[in-house]
Amino acid sequence: MQIMIFGQIDLILLLASLMVASTPILLAALGELVVEKAGVLNLGVEGMMITGAVVGFAVGVNTQSPAVGFLAAALAGALLSLLFGLITQYLKSNQVATGLALTLFGLGLSSLLGKPYEGVKAATLGKMHLPFLSDIPVLGPILFRHDPMVYLSILAVVAVWAFLTYTRPGLILRAVGENHEAAHALGYKVVRVRLLAILFGGAMAGLGGAYVSLVRVPQWTEGMTAGAGWIALAIVVFASWRPLRVLIGAYLFGGVSVLQLNLQAAGVAIPVEYLSSSPYLVTILVLVIISLRGQHGAPGSLGRIFHASS
C-alpha cells in the first residue's frame, strides 16, 4: 500500500486517521452551524460535548451497545441545550454569557456523573467495511473502512446542506437567523424555530462528545474533550456558516493536528514548538486567504435577542 508517500509519511494512513480525528469537531460544528444559522450563538458546545461524552460512555458500558450510547448522548446534549434554549429564548438572557455558563455547568455535571466510570473499558464500535467499496485499491482503506459514525457525520453534512438550501423549513430557519423581525412579521414562530435549532445543536454536540469517549479514545476521564468544543465553534466561523465548508474546516484542522504528530514521529527537522502550533496557524492562514475573497456570511441576527413587540 506504500504508493503515496509524503516524505516518510504514508498519506493513505494519514487520511484515514484524520477522518477519525476530525469527526468529533465535525459533528459538533455542524450542530452549532444550524444553531447560528437560526441566529443563536451558543458558546456552550464544550459543555454539551463533555456531557455527551460521559452519558454516551455510561450508557454504552451499561448496555454494551455503543449505538444506544450514541443515542443517549444525543439526548443528553439536547437536554442540556434545552436549558440554554429556555433561558435565552424565553427569559431573553444574553447568549454569550449563558453559553459560557452552560460550559461550566456541563463540565461540573459530567465529572459528577462520570465518577463511577473512571477506569472502565467500553465495548468498541466495530468497523464497517462497506462491501466492494472497501476493496478498491488505495481509496478503499481510506474512505470505506471506518466506523459507522464517520459515514454518518459526512451524511449529516450533506443532509444539513440540503435542508438549509432546498427545504422550506430550512429556508424559514435561515430567514429567522437573517432577520428575526422580518421573519416574525411574516408569521414565522421565531422562538420555536430557534429552540428546535438549539436542540439539534445540542444533540450533535452530544454525539461529537460520545465519539471521543466511545470511539476515539475510548474511555471516560474528567475534562476529556479538552477544548474540542471551542475548536468546533471556530470551525463554524472558518466555514463562513456553510455546511460543506464545515467539513473542509474540520478535516483541515484535524488533518494538520494529525500531520504534525506524524511529522514529529517521522523525525522531520522542524522545531516542535512550530509544529504544535501549526493546526491553529494553518487554520488562521486559510481563513485569511478565504476572507481575501470577501465572503463573510454571518447570519444577520446572530446573537441578538429577539423580542416580539407586537
Partner: peptide, 25 residues
C-alpha cells in the same frame, strides 16, 4: 526511538493521535 512531544500532560484525543502516528511510523 521515535519521540513525539504532545505538549500536554492530559489530552486523551491527542494522545490517541500521537500513538497512531507512531504506529504508522
Amino acid at each position: 526511538f521515535k519521540i513525539v512531544w504532545a505538549y500536554t500532560w492530559f489530552d486523551p484525543a491527542k494522545e490517541a493521535d500521537a500513538a497512531k502516528a507512531l504506529i504508522e511510523q
